[in-house]
C-alpha cells in the first residue's frame, strides 16, 4: 500500500498544491458525472493527444470497471496514417468499443459537398457526419477534448454545454455553472457536449502525458518529412490530400506536429524534439499559440465561433 497522502484537489475551485493532480481530479469528477447523469454518452476520439488524454482519465475514473461508454471517431478520410494505426492499437489494447463514421459517406450520400482549391479541407464537413451519428445512436452526451485556452470563443464554453435538436450552440443562453455542480438535465433530442479538460492548457496536457507516460502517435515527435512552405506555414508533401501548386517546392526537413487534425489543415513546425521531455520543454518555450498552426481558424477572426454555433466539436 502507498503511504503517501493523495493530494488531488480540484483546480477550478481554489488553491491546490499540485496543479496537474487538481486538473486530473476535476476531469475524473466530470467523467463520473457524465456516466451518472446520461443514458448514452460517447467519447469523441480523434486520435489526437487531447482525446488520448481523455481515454486515460476515463480509465482512471472507472477503475477497476471498464470505461462505461464507447469511443467514436469521425473520420475525415484525411487523417495521418500514423493516427489511424495508433487508434486501432489503443482500442484493441484497452478492449474499448470504437464506432467509426466517415465523412466520405456523407459526401457520397450528397449531404455535404467537398471543398475545392488551395485551402480545401474536410474539417467543416465533419459537423454533418457528427450530427448524423449523434442522431443515429441517440447519444445524449458527447465528451470532447476541447480546452478553453485554445481559442477565445472556447474560453466561454461551459463544461456541460447544451446543444439543441440541431446540434447548435447558443452561446448567449448558456447555463451558469456554479461551484462543482453540473446540470445535465435535457429534453429529448438535445445533447450535451462535455469538456472534462476545459481548464487544462496545452502545456498541462503535455506535462500529463509525460508524467503518466502515455503513448501518443509518432507524428507528435520530430521526424524527417517532405514538406513545402506556404503563407509562412509548413505543409506535409507526403499525401495528395494537401493541395500543392507546382511552384511550391518540396524539401526534406525535420518537423513535428503540435495538433493532429485533418491533414489538409494541419501544419507542422520545425522541431528537433524527438522525445516527450524535449516536447514539453519546447512547448514551455513556445511563443506561437497552438491554434496558430491551424489554417481553419485563420480564415476569419470569428471562425471558431461560427463553427461552434453550427454544431462543430
Amino acid at each position: 500500500m502507498e503511504t503517501t497522502i493523495i493530494d488531488t484537489p480540484t483546480k477550478t475551485e481554489g488553491l491546490p498544491k499540485l496543479k496537474i493532480n487538481a486538473l486530473e481530479s476535476e476531469a475524473i469528477y466530470i467523467l463520473r458525472e457524465v456516466a451518472a447523469q446520461f443514458e448514452k454518452p460517447v467519447l469523441l476520439f480523434s486520435g489526437g493527444k487531447d482525446s488520448i488524454t481523455l481515454v486515460r482519465l476515463a480509465q482512471k475514473a472507472f477503475y477497476p470497471a471498464k470505461i462505461p461508454f464507447p469511443l467514436m471517431h469521425i473520420d475525415t478520410g484525411h487523417n495521418f496514417p500514423e493516427t489511424i494505426e495508433f487508434r486501432d492499437r489503443l482500442v484493441k489494447e484497452l478492449g474499448l468499443e470504437l464506432i467509426i463514421r466517415n465523412v466520405q459517406d456523407s459526401i457520397d450520400e450528397g449531404k455535404v459537398v467537398e471543398e475545392s482549391g488551395k485551402y480545401a479541407s474536410r474539417n467543416m464537413l465533419q459537423t454533418t457526419t457528427l450530427l448524423d451519428a449523434i442522431e443515429e445512436f441517440k447519444f445524449d452526451a458527447c465528451i470532447g477534448g476541447a480546452r478553453r485556452d485554445e481559442e477565445k470563443a472556447r474560453a466561454k464554453e461551459r463544461i456541460f454545454s447544451v446543444r439543441d435538436d440541431f446540434g447548435q450552440w447558443d452561446e448567449k443562453n448558456q447555463r451558469p455553472e456554479l461551484f462543482d455542480m453540473l446540470n445535465g438535465e435535457i429534453e429529448m433530442g438535445q445533447n450535451v457536449r462535455v469538456f472534462p479538460i476545459s481548464n487544462w492548457t496545452e502545456l498541462d496536457v503535455w506535462s500529463y502525458i509525460e508524467k503518466e507516460d502515455i503513448e501518443i502517435p509518432s507524428i507528435y515527435f520530430a521526424h524527417k518529412r517532405n514538406v513545402f512552405l506556404r503563407d509562412g506555414m509548413i505543409w506535409s508533401a507526403e499525401d495528395e490530400v494537401v493541395f500543392r501548386a507546382d511552384d511550391e517546392l518540396v524539401e526534406e526537413r525535420t518537423v513535428r506536429f503540435r495538433t493532429v487534425g485533418d491533414m489538409s489543415c494541419t501544419a507542422a513546425v520545425f522541431s528537433h524534439a524527438d522525445t516527450i521531455d524535449k516536447v514539453v520543454a519546447e512547448i514551455r518555450e513556445s511563443k506561437i499559440s497552438e491554434r496558430g498552426a491551424r489554417i481553419d481558424d485563420k480564415r476569419s477572426e470569428a471562425a471558431m465561433e461560427k463553427r461552434k454555433q453550427q454544431g462543430y466539436f
Binding site: M1, I6, T8, A61, Y63
Partner: peptide, 19 residues
Amino acid sequence: DIYFYDKKYKKATRRSSVT
C-alpha cells in the same frame, strides 16, 4: 480501502476524486 486508479492510499483529502 481508498483507491485512486489502481493504487490504494491511506488518506484522501483536498477534493481528490477517489473510490
